[in-house]
Amino acid sequence: MSAAGIAVFAALAVIAVAAGIAVFVVDSMARATFALAMSFVAVGGELVLLTLAYLGVVTILMMVMEMAIMVIFMVMFMMNPAGLMPMSMLHNKRGALAISVGTFALLAAGALAVPWPARRGVVPAPAQTTRAAGEAIMGGQMPVMVGISAVLFATIVSALMLAVPHGRYDHAPRDARSPHDRGLHDNAGHDGTHHDGTHHDGTLHDGGDWR
């Protein structure tokens, strides 16, 4: 890696650790969530620098999406669902701190102490590193893993289809809804212009700029 590469790597490493610490320092659920996201994005950048472009970008993609999903869980399960009030992000303070510092020390010691093997064979071309990493990790089991991923996803979709036959608003009989609600619901039924002559047909439209 070039000197500039090492400098960027070091900067990303500092960002990753600092953002990780920020998760426990800030007093807002949203800031903690996105500090964690930033930490993972920095780690994704490290992977890109290690020529694992696919894994790096996918790490960014997955972790950012995961944090946004966590926001949805926030509204489902928290006592302060909007997360707007300042609140401590810390539960089991001492234990959490001990576990985090211990894990960090263990991993850092491992990274420094392990006798890393010398490179064997040729360096794969950038386009081949994803395949090379996949073969190194999964070897002959790759077709099985690919098959399982499709089956797992199909299972998730089918489970959802079975578990949620109706949406949250679909329990009320149709006629019980307000006319306004029906207007939102039915895309058809445009029945002329509104009394003030504006574009209004009982449906909701994109707002536009005149506001």
Binding site: A53, V57, L61, V64, M65, A68, T130
Partner: peptide
């Protein structure tokens, strides 16, 4: 980049945030 398509996808996911 060799993974330009994934980059585009990752950026559209950042829109969630």
């Amino acid at each position: 980049p060799t993974v330009g398509l994934v980059w585009f996808n990752a950026m559209d996911v950042v829109l969630w945030i």
